[in-house]
Design a binder for these strands. Structure first.
Length: 281
DNA sequence: CTCCTGTCCTGCCGGC
DNA sequence: TGCCGGCAGGACAGGA
């Protein structure tokens, strides 16, 4: 589920509880998610102090005093909940990992499909780590621009939709926001990635930034302190403009939906794409 | 290299 | 009511 805005919102929700916290106990409730938990993770986290959190792509990086990083990826169905001091913890199916903090707070990772990942690495290995070394630019950072995007798309025969899902091109964009950004930019998802240039590229960069920023803002304003009543962090009901709206009227079209059929759904490399054939070409 | 397919896993929804 | 197929927002490995 989670793309950049959701991961960012989860991270912001964790920050006030985790920054400066001391881990008294780390508890894995099964041997693996998509990859095995490190065999010694419980031992390695015990007693550690968290200095700060940050996000890279769709990964949450929890920096520990002493130079290690605890990495969390939410996969498709991962979520994190905060159990505050004194609150009863009603454990749920698929609660796979729990951090107990000296403050009395517990941080619970739940993931039904187990496509998520939790692992550790030394800070010095971050840049060369196999999950991070190939990542493209952060879409909301300074090193994401039309020229940079064009350079990464150059010569690509795959569709622009597929290219936007490729984390080597730009990070954080998943199936939903790829659809939303292409709609906003007026670009057909089927267009060859390598053909996106000039003004089109400028529009696309701006559209990606806009949809992501707006979603983060919506998360922040919808969730009080990023937290639901049940302690879960980060996700909220979000209205998308094209995603999941097959056969609905396109907001930018004033044509007759009975004639046009409205928003279309197609499948590109196994993933649903939603778009308006009249406003995207 | 690039591109495509298969794969991990559970939950949910619609159709019969 | 229950069963079954299809689908789900990620991202890897492996093969063409």
């Amino acid at each position: 589920m989670p793309e950049l805005p959701e991961v960012e919102t989860v991270m912001r929700g964790l920050e006030p509880f985790l920054t400066g916290a001391i881990i008294t106990k780390a508890q894995k409730n099964r041997p693996n998610l998509r990859i095995p938990f490190p065999a010694t993770i419980e031992h390695d986290l015990k007693g550690r102090t968290i200095t700060h959190l940050r996000r890279r792509a769709k990964y949450i990086l929890i920096h520990l005093k002493g130079g290690d990083i605890l990495v969390i990826h939410l996969g498709m169905s991962g979520s994190v909940s905060i159990i505050e001091k004194g609150q009863r913890y009603n454990s749920q199916t698929h609660d796979h990992f729990v951090l107990h903090l000296k403050s009395g707070v517990r941080v619970v990772y739940n993931d039904p499909r187990r496509f998520g990942m939790i692992f550790m690495m030394a800070e010095q290995d971050y840049a060369s780590h196999k999950y991070f070394v190939h990542l493209g630019p952060e879409p909301l950072g300074n090193d994401f621009s039309a020229p940079i995007l064009c350079a990464r798309l150059k010569g690509k025969q795959a569709s622009i939709k597929q290219a936007l899902l490729d984390q080597r091109v730009v990070v954080g964009v998943g199936n939903i926001y790829a659809c939303e950004a292409l709609y906003r930019a007026g670009i057909s998802p089927m267009k060859k990635a390598g053909s996106i240039k000039g003004e089109k590229a400028e529009l696309l960069v701006q559209a990606i930034r806009d949809v992501l920023k707006r979603a983060i803002k919506a998360g922040g304003s919808t969730l009080k302190d990023y937290k639901h009543a049940d302690g879960s962090l980060g996700y909220f009901q979000h209205q998308f403009t094209v995603y999941g709206r097959e056969k609905e009227a396109c907001q930018r079209c004033d044509c007759d939906i009975n004639k046009t059929g409205g928003i279309k759904r197609v499948v590109q490399s196994g993933r649903s794409t939603f778009y308006c054939p009249r406003k995207q070409n």
